[in-house]
């Protein structure tokens, strides 16, 4: 075991996957020589050579389009989109091509492809470096969407994604890269080395896609969260003293509905937290599923705490970012209902 930041864990996932399978190829903007603007591919070019880890032109559609061709050839490309905010030029390639390829030709060609991208706010990135576009991917049939919340999960889930026979969107909450950020931006950053989930095996391992993790057991209310919001929820629970059960989804699609249903059936209350904008957000899908599966257990309306339906602001970042206070208010409200 070693102490790793999420960046180091992601780098290690690449490294161990490339070491065991020469079909794994890594590229993206600034990914090669420099090792990525967040350093998630540091040292890979030096170790595996420029044919397996290289810089790409600034053209997201080209990065994904060529990666689909490589995957169809039989390689296992794992490409980086520098910020999820930049992925939209590649949306056609992801939706119409990567996601549909297996189905449209009945498996004649397939697309084992991983598309990594940093997501989320809390870094003063403004509207073009802070978005959480998970719902534009979970809405598309044929792709999996994964969002780890800690170094241990990040490494195991990325290794599993690279091994997966289908395309995977791998979203990395960039505010978690260096520590478990709980929304209290006024406090100093807690480093991963002081957190138990910063303990990461150096060897190759995978964690199953489609499995959620209960981060805190509780009886009063279920909080469904993923990414940075897991720590915001933990802070809110600590500050309100409400005995909430916190579920970290880890994979958004396929969704581990069993874990959610089991928890809400027990608690009878549910708060859903995500950074992304509210309307047509993934929380809407989660709320519907909870309503469909747990209606007769519910004792209060399902509540969402999300980013506002505005572009992600710069100066007003902390008015936008779902804070522990907002989550705490929601917890109290569902407990009072």
């Amino acid at each position: 075991m070693a102490k790793m930041t999420m960046i180091e864990a992601i780098q290690s996932a690449h490294d161990t996957a490339m070491d065991r399978d020469e079909k794994v190829v890594v590229y993206g903007e600034d990914v090669g020589f420099f090792g990525g603007v967040f350093r998630c591919t540091a040292g890979l070019q030096e170790k595996y050579g420029p044919t397996r880890c290289f810089d790409a032109p600034i053209n997201e559609s080209g990065i994904i389009g060529t990666a689909i061709g490589m995957a169809a050839y039989g390689l296992r490309p794992c490409v980086e989109i520098q910020f999820s905010d930049y992925v939209y030029p590649a949306y056609d390639q992801i939706v119409s091509e990567a996601a549909r390829l297996r189905h449209r030709c009945a498996g004649d060609f397939t697309c084992p492809l991983v598309i990594r991208m940093p997501v989320g706010g809390g870094i003063f990135g403004g509207q073009t470096h802070s978005q959480s576009p998970e719902a534009v991917f979970t809405h598309v049939c044929g792709i999996k969407t994964v969002m780890p919340s800690n170094p241990y999960d990040a490494k195991g889930l990325l290794a599993a994604a690279i091994n997966d026979p289908d395309p995977v969107i791998f979203m990395e909450p960039k505010r978690l890269y260096n520590g478990p950020f709980d929304g209290h931006h006024e406090n100093p950053v807690v480093p991963w080395r002081d957190h138990e989930l910063g303990e990461v095996p150096e060897d190759y391992y995978t964690l199953p896609l489609g499995k959620a993790e209960v981060r805190r057991s509780g009886e009063a209310v279920t909080v469904i969260a993923y990414g940075t919001m897991v720590y915001v929820a933990e802070a809110a629970v600590a500050e309100t003293g409400i005995d909430a059960e916190i579920i970290d989804l880890r994979t958004l699609l396929p969704l581990d509905l069993d874990t959610i249903v089991e928890s809400v059936s027990k608690t009878g209350r549910c708060v859903i937290v995500h950074e992304a904008t509210r309307t047509s957000g993934y929380g809407g899908e989660l709320a519907t599923l909870v309503q469909e599966e747990c209606f007769y257990h519910l004792e209060a309306p399902i509540t969402r705490v999300t980013g506002w339906d505005t572009p992600y602001p710069h100066a007003q970042e902390w008015d936008y970012f779902p804070s522990p206070e907002r989550v705490g208010r929601a917890l109290k409200k569902v407990m009072e209902a």
């Binding site: 190829v25 044919t51 397996r52 389009g65 060529t66 689909i68 061709g69 490589m70 050839y73 390689l75």
Partner: peptide, 13 residues
């Protein structure tokens, strides 16, 4: 671009 990527894969391999 998929054709280009397939050809890149052939060269990489």
């Amino acid at each position: 671009p998929q054709a280009v990527g397939w050809a890149m894969a052939s060269a990489i391999s």
